[in-house]
Design a protein around this nucleic acid. Structure first.
Length: 263
DNA sequence: ATGGCTAAGGCACTTAGA
């Protein structure tokens, strides 16, 4: 089965692209980020018409995540414990769905990790704190010893080779040592980053800035990742970046990435 | 190039993204 992640940069502005991609790619589960819409305004009927169950965690103007699934949801959890929908933090960045695959549970998360720029603002410690919370949550989930896949826009460039021009990002929150160290800590809990587990090529990106002809120059970065628990990673058959959507009319600045999971 | 597009809110611009 196909499990995908895509930061669509506005679900209303991108509805046509989203529906076209869903029909073409036929993901069984699709994790979306940056809906930029409250739940009531998310065009769920159009998505449901393509055969998807739709669970969203929206927010006005910014952030917002969703999981679309051809399988029924056994359980849905919104927000990372300690963050999201608390008085001090109303950012919608995390939703977890639980499914049954071959009479075993499969947990899938759609997450939108904070950008963290500018690094001299409160946004950078907010990003690092969010990553610390994610690590705590992930450690607990791994104790279940179940298939678990954390899909999303991590806003982290893991290695220099994951940027076309790494030198341009050295002072950026996406590439700062503190961000990269936390990403490695997450992996070191026992997760497999799906793309690098099967693909050793350079020049592989999931985001190209709208400015400066980045797409035409392949001046991109790889920041959308699929992290798999050991029980899930053993079922990994392959990973594909759906790069062609970046050349569509009115594209998102991110493209979908998906993995083939042996159900 | 601390920003050269883009989306959203809402109607002139600002905030945010990465």
């Amino acid at each position: 089965m196909k499990i995908a992640s895509w930061n669509i940069n506005g679900v209303k502005a991108r509805l046509d692209n989203l529906l076209t991609w869903l029909e073409e790619a036929q993901p069984d589960i699709a994790c979306l980020q940056e809906l930029k819409s409250v739940d009531e305004n998310i065009p769920r009927m159009e998505i449901e018409a393509l055969g998807y169950n739709v669970e969203t965690f929206g927010q006005k103007s910014f952030n917002g995540v969703a999981i679309l699934s051809k399988l029924p949801f056994d359980e849905v959890n919104r927000a990372l414990p300690g963050y999201d929908i608390q008085e001090e933090d109303e950012q919608a960045r995390f939703i977890e769905g639980v499914f049954t695959v071959g009479d075993k549970p499969l947990r899938v998360v759609s997450l939108y990790l904070p950008n963290g720029n500018p690094v001299d603002s409160e946004k950078f410690p907010y990003k690092l704190g969010w990553m610390d919370r994610l690590e705590i949550w992930a450690r607990q989930r791994l104790e279940l010893e179940e298939p678990l896949i954390l899909c999303g826009d991590y806003n982290v460039i893991p290695m220099p080779r994951d940027a076309s021009r790494p030198e341009a990002w050295v002072n950026d929150a996406l590439f700062k040592p503190e961000s990269r160290a936390r990403f490695r800590r997450l992996l070191n809990l026992g997760f497999t980053e799906a793309f690098r587990n099967v693909n050793d090529d350079d020049g592989q990106y999931t985001f190209w800035d709208y400015t400066g002809g980045s797409w035409q120059k392949n001046d991109g970065i790889r920041i959308d990742h699929l992290l798999m628990s050991p029980e899930a990673a053993n079922r990994l058959n392959g990973v594909v970046i759906d790069k062609h959507t970046r050349s569509w009319e009115r594209p998102s600045d991110h493209v979908p990435i998906w993995l083939d999971y042996a159900a």
